[in-house]
Amino acid sequence: MMDNTTNPVQTMAEMTQNGVSPEVLFWVGCAGSFDDRSKKITKAFVELLQRANVSFAVLGPEESCTGDPAKRAGNEFLFQMQASTNIEVLNGYQVKKIVTACPHCFNTLKNEYPQLGGQYEVLHHTQFLHQLIEEGRLNIESKTEYKGKKITFHDPCYLGRANKEYEAPRALIKKLSAELVEMKSCKEKGLCCGAGGAQMFKDAEKGDKEINIERTEQALDTNPEIIAAGCPFCNTMLHDGVTNKGKESKVAVLDIAQLLAQTESL
């Protein structure tokens, strides 16, 4: 596990003070900072970054919501206020490269900040981890626990359709020598978990089913041992779905970073 005493996570402020400029800024996001399930994803990802000896920093108390849920809820004003504040901080530190484990932050930073003066190379953590493995900086050796295990991957809308990244997370699952099984709706046709567009923060409109239940049923139809996710919101929605179906002791919902962190490095 992560050892905070010997290898603390440093903030941009601390690094700058020491005259160091990190390779990459890890944008933790609100879920990754505060939500209990998502904090595990954050820690798993940090563990992998440290294992790969990546020099990284976080913004810590200087980080603020990207404004994604405000924009999707229709509050362009609040979104732009958040974006302007964040861009001022990021540009102040001359940040060039950002990695984040949240596809909503990823999409907003990558696609909606440039028009407001924030130009960065932005990567989703599955893309970054895939690069690290390809470059030989991160070694993944799957313990036998994943061998032949059925894992299905749920495409986050803001990573998949919104940014056409379907392969990086799948390539990582294949590295675990697990059996990747696809759901009825996947990739371009992937079904939303129900949390996007600020739905995470409100009850659904009247209907005959919750979206996360529909999606969880599609996932369970593949008889997986693990449902892999790449987004803290999807993770929560699918976990709730699995619990609702009484399958939480049989089927785990885990972020890809969590799957990789449980492997042993060579």
Binding site: V9, T11, V28, C30, S33, F34, D35, V58, L59, G60, P61, E63, S64, C65, P69, Q82, M200, F201
Partner: peptide, 12 residues
């Protein structure tokens, strides 16, 4: 600075 009522100072 977060969609939930947490203190920004607690982000780390």
């Amino acid at each position: 600075g977060a969609p939930w009522p947490f203190n920004q100072q607690d982000r780390l």
